[in-house]
């Protein structure tokens, strides 16, 4: 394990503890079993574009939803910034501040930048 990787993982771990200790959330009865109705496919950070901050972002954001919900977006930095606020205000995500916020914003901006490519229609006969 390289020093850089170690460093990144340590940030991810710090963020995780932040996520785990926020507010007085308690696990509602049945919350764990509820997901048994459908088992989401396991995602790994390595499936997503490689850039600094990938692991931190992956583990921080997947506390609630799959990373695909993040990865199917393409946004400018101001819109990603707004998305982080939205996650906190609307969904109770621990507030990201200072360096942690920069790490995650840097990754999001680099990995999923604003795009004019619309996933909506793809020509089925295009040879790739």
């Amino acid at each position: 394990m390289t020093a850089i990787r170690k460093g990144r993982a340590a940030v991810a771990a710090r963020l995780l503890v932040l996520a785990m200790t926020t507010s007085a959330l308690s696990l509602p009865p049945g919350a764990a079993s509820a997901q048994q109705t459908f088992t989401p496919r396991e995602e790994e950070p390595e499936e997503f574009p490689d850039a600094p901050g990938r692991e931190e972002t992956f583990y921080f954001c997947t506390a609630c939803h799959n990373f695909k919900l993040v990865a199917q977006q393409g946004m400018s930095r101001p819109r990603w910034d707004g998305t982080l606020d939205f996650m906190t205000e609307r969904h109770g995500m621990p507030k990201l501040e200072g360096k942690d916020r920069d790490v995650i914003l840097d990754y999001l901006e680099q990995a999923f930048p604003e795009t004019t490519a619309t996933p909506g229609w793809q020509n089925p006969f295009l040879k790739r």
């Binding site: 963020l15 996520a19 785990m20 696990l27 997901q35």
Partner: peptide
């Protein structure tokens, strides 16, 4: 504290 996201904690991720 309680661990609200425990169901999301990947196995093998050392608790922070």
């Amino acid at each position: 504290g309680a661990i609200p996201f425990s169901q999301n904690m990947p196995a093998g991720l050392i608790p922070a």
